[in-house]
């Protein structure tokens, strides 16, 4: 997936001279995950710049650059380091268009690795998308495959408003997939149905699509037909696709790696409670990370929802 991300950067830089890439170690080093490898060589050190080691700097300068006509694609090295940038994101990036009545805007993409599962050190495995989803005025996107990473990153860069682009670290090198470098974006604000089914709807995103699809394969053997929806844009949520699916299946399971409390899963459950309650034949189930700190890596597999937990949750919705 990481190559698809590099490819999307390169396509857009080639076709839009206002696109610039900034971040820590994005230049000669090509990013710590190599997501920007080769870009500085190809597009020069004015358009691909290492910043000083300061996340507030990265977000704040993005606001300034974007308001004056550039399209910064900024990398925050790990999600756990994003917090110094939040002041700029919450108080400026997300509000610029609104508070100037459209006079200024912030077409910024902030990319950051998301989630755990790769034996990384402390503060390198967080999935705190909920904090971002609660901020009005920004989009939050999380791809689940190389092709979606390519198409959604292009869409995010082209979008006239700020997008937080969360890249699941477990997927960076998890799968090989041919991605056509044709510059075609995928839609934002839209879910992707990864697999159609009739008995239960499972909504998930990012790296949890891996465990979910494995759980669905097991459920298949037991004669359970699950529909799998990749949320893709975590904010704003494409409610129509989810509600249509629940209307068909009558059951909903939500799977996410992030903590349960006030998680994006709670928002999805609330949407279905508000607009699809009478379609439900069983209570909604959530399979999530625990409401505790992401543990250091010896216990991280006990934190990340397992295939078995997903299967059991689906079975719970099927009890008559």
């Amino acid at each position: 997936m990481v190559e698809a991300i590099t490819m999307a950067h390169a396509w857009e830089m080639q076709h839009d001279p206002s696109v610039v890439v900034i971040g820590q170690d994005v230049g000669a080093n090509g990013g710590v995950f190599r997501a920007t490898v080769g870009l500085q060589e190809r597009f020069g050190s004015a358009r691909v710049q290492d910043t000083p080691l300061a996340e507030a700097t990265i977000a704040g300068m993005s606001v300034g650059m974007a308001a004056q006509g550039l399209k910064p694609v900024a990398e925050i090295q790990f999600m756990g380091f994003m917090y110094p940038a939040l002041d700029q994101i919450v108080n400026h990036m997300s509000r610029m268009r609104h508070r100037t009545r459209g006079r200024l805007s912030c077409p910024v993409v902030i990319r950051t690795p998301h989630g755990g599962g790769i034996h990384a050190p402390e503060h390198h495995s967080e999935s705190t998308e909920t904090m971002l989803c609660h901020i009005p005025g920004i989009r939050v996107v999380c791809p689940s495959s190389p092709a979606r990473a390519y198409g959604l990153l292009l869409a995010s860069i082209r979008d006239p408003d700020p997008v937080m682009f969360l890249e699941p670290v477990r997927l960076y090198r998890a799968m090989r997939q041919e991605v056509v470098d044709n510059g075609r974006a995928l839609p934002l604000d839209a879910c992707f149905v990864l697999r159609e089914g009739t008995d239960v709807t499972i909504v998930t995103w990012g790296a949890m699509t891996l465990e979910t699809l494995r759980a669905v394969a097991e459920l298949d053997k037991e004669g359970v037909s699950a529909e799998v929806i990749d949320l893709a844009t975590l904010s704003p949520i494409d409610a129509d696709t989810i509600l249509a699916s629940v209307a068909k299946t009558g059951r909903l399971v939500i799977v996410h790696e992030a903590a349960r409390n006030v998680g994006v899963g709670a928002e999805i459950a609330a949407i279905v409670a508000e607009h699809g309650l009478y379609d439900l034949q069983a209570p909604v189930q959530r399979v999530t990370g625990f409401d505790t700190i992401m543990p250091l890596f010896r216990l991280e597999q006990d934190y990340i929802p397992s295939v078995k937990r997903i299967v059991d949750a689906v079975q719970l919705t099927l009890i008559d």
Binding site: F290, I293, L299, D302
Partner: peptide
């Protein structure tokens, strides 16, 4: 390695109810 209880036991000085419940889920899986 630590038992899964280690994820919960030192988050607060005393464990709130919802974490006691989640601790059981973690043990089970």
């Amino acid at each position: 390695k630590q038992p899964t209880d280690a994820m919960f036991d030192r988050l607060f000085a005393s464990i709130p109810k919802h974490l006691q419940e989640q601790r059981l889920v973690a043990r089970k899986y």
